[in-house]
Amino acid sequence: MTPPPFERFYEEHREEIYAFLVRRLGRDRADDAFQETFLRALRAYPKLRHSEHLRAWAYTIASRIAIDEHRRPRADAELPELASLDGRPAFAELEHLAGELPPTERAAVVLRYGYDLDYADIGAALGSNATAARQAASAGIRRLRRKEAQ
């Protein structure tokens, strides 16, 4: 099924994406990141071939933008607490590694270890809950380990 008209996608996800960006970046920086998230989504939208996982897709774009925002130094704004991204695989690499996982596990692994989302956010992105997100992420990791061992 082709994706719904963009208006509907935007209406459905804008509040939670905005709330997510406020949590990640603080209100001062969330506004610009919000606009950038949905402009980026608009640019990519005609290339989507189906309407599955649109919510996780929106979170992925928002996460990427939040990470870019964090890397950009800005003296005038107070940064909220950010869990360390060090010591974890870069998200680009992880997306590549996780490419062959089933969609939900893949999204959970990438959002958890690539974008450092907590399980509540991942649950929201996947339309489930924190527990299901944690299970999907660990199932994905186990699968990756098995694959590596082969």
Partner: peptide, 16 residues
Amino acid sequence: MSPVSTELDRRFRDAA
């Protein structure tokens, strides 16, 4: 939770 303000919403729709 802070909702998307009318102004921000309008800004995005204009920019698009």
